[in-house]
Simulated scan of single mutants.
Amino acid sequence: MMEQLKVIISGGGTGGHIYPAISIADEIIRRYPSAEILFVGAKDRMEMDKVPQAGYKIEGLWISGIDRSLTKRNLSFPFKVISSLWESRKIIKKFKPDVVIGTGGFASGPLLKVANTMNIPTLIQEQNSYPGITNRLLGKNADAICTAYDNLENYFPLAKTVKTGNPVRQDILDVASKREEAQEFFKLKKERKTLLVLGGSLGARRINQLMEAFVDIFEKEDIQLIWQTGSLYYEEYKKFDNEFVQTHAFLSRMDLAYAAADVIVSRAGAISVSELCIVGKPVIFIPSPNVAENHQAKNALTVANEDAAYVLNEKDLAKEFSETILLVLKSEKVQKNLSENIKKLALPGATAAIVNTMEKIIKKEKLN
């Protein structure tokens, strides 16, 4: 390489934007060990902690989203946008990046907008089957858009769009070989079916209420439960721990949790869906109804339409969950069908494909 490669990556607000960004950064450093990477996030959001923990520098912008209802917080939004555009320009002029990558979230909007006006190559990584408003606006001027789903030409220029998949953690790529290790790690009985329940790092109230109603039924059916309650709800639900049920605020070894599971109940965030396709276990998605533009329901339906998962809406859980969960847990045929079909949707080489695309849009002499 003639000169040092310099990359700004922006994305945050939720783990679904942050962890893909960190995966991309790690792949860039693997290829270009002397590369300099700077993250830009939103002040007071989780990226300001998570990115430094991963070993990267980050700068924060004063930016947030617009509340869908009329609130006082919305009054400050125009000032936050102006401030963030100004700060983004200063950051870019000082750092002089060769490329700017956005993985979604509030901060990526102003930063990529400014990069476009300064003729710096930009790449968007869109995780969802239905793009968010920030990426839809930025897509017109981006040099490349890396997507995880087909049929996004209504939102992005087709010539610039590359289906790469979503970056996922590398330790889940071979969970099949970790089954025995996982059973020992979680102290599981090998003869019992194992249900893994995931409500996200903070937790999902409705999913936790559902598990509370079913713990006795699972025990009668000889089913053991690994139940990630989320940090907000752990204290409330840890009382259910027994030889059939184990509650966790957070799962530090998600690869082993996947490996241990026979069936998985999960939210349908974009990264979770991508991981579950690679893991290849039977899944029942319960999309969160509280996310922007109903992303999770759309992500889950994309999988369900391929006969690769079940999708249950929160409002239908009372009448549909019991029949669905027992069908999936008891029928080897249903499990095999779901598992085979969801594996067909997996895109395990996503991170490498995104960095390949980045290389194409950077001036070629920079990488020679």
Rank of each mutant, 00 (worst) to 15 (best):
I82A: 13
I82N: 08
S83V: 04
S83L: 07
W86I: 13
S88I: 06
R89T: 03
K90N: 06
K90A: 06
K90C: 04
I91H: 02
I92S: 00
K93T: 05
K94R: 04
K94Y: 02
K96G: 01
P97A: 00
P97H: 01
V99N: 02
I101E: 03
I101N: 04
G102Q: 07
T103C: 02
G104E: 01
G105M: 01
G105P: 02
A107Q: 03
A107R: 06
S108V: 08
S108H: 10
S108L: 10
S108D: 08
G109V: 15
G109I: 14
G109Y: 15
P110L: 10
P110H: 14
L111M: 14
L111T: 14
V114T: 13
A115R: 15
T117Q: 11
M118G: 06
N119W: 04
N119G: 00
I120Q: 08
T122V: 12
T122Y: 10
I124C: 10
I124Q: 09
I124T: 10
Q125A: 08
Q127R: 02
N128I: 11
S129L: 04
S129Q: 06
Y130F: 15
Y130I: 13
P131W: 07
I133G: 12
I133D: 12
I133K: 15
T134F: 14
T134G: 11
R136F: 11
L137R: 15
G139W: 01
K140W: 01
K140D: 00
A144Y: 03
A144M: 09
A144D: 06
A144P: 10
I145L: 02
C146P: 12
C146V: 05
T147K: 07
A148K: 00
A148W: 01
D150P: 14
L152R: 04
L152Q: 06
N154V: 05
Y155M: 09
Y155G: 08
F156D: 02
F156T: 01
P157T: 00
L158D: 02
L158M: 05
A159K: 14
K160S: 05
K160A: 04
K160G: 06
T161Y: 04
T161C: 09
V162R: 15
T164V: 11
T164Y: 08
P167G: 02
V168N: 00
R169D: 05
R169A: 07
Q170R: 14
Q170H: 08
I172C: 05
L173I: 02
L173Q: 03
L173A: 03
K178H: 08
K178G: 08
R179L: 09
R179T: 10
R179P: 12
E181R: 03
A182Q: 07
Q183N: 10
E184S: 15
E184R: 13
F185C: 08
F186E: 12
F186S: 12
F186G: 11
F186D: 14
F186L: 11
K187Y: 12
L188A: 07
K190T: 11
K193Q: 07
T194W: 00
L195Y: 02
L196A: 02
V197N: 10
V197R: 12
L198F: 10
L198K: 05
G200V: 07
S201K: 10
G203W: 09
A204R: 09
A204T: 09
A204M: 07
R205T: 07
I207M: 13
I207V: 14
I207G: 15
N208S: 11
N208E: 11
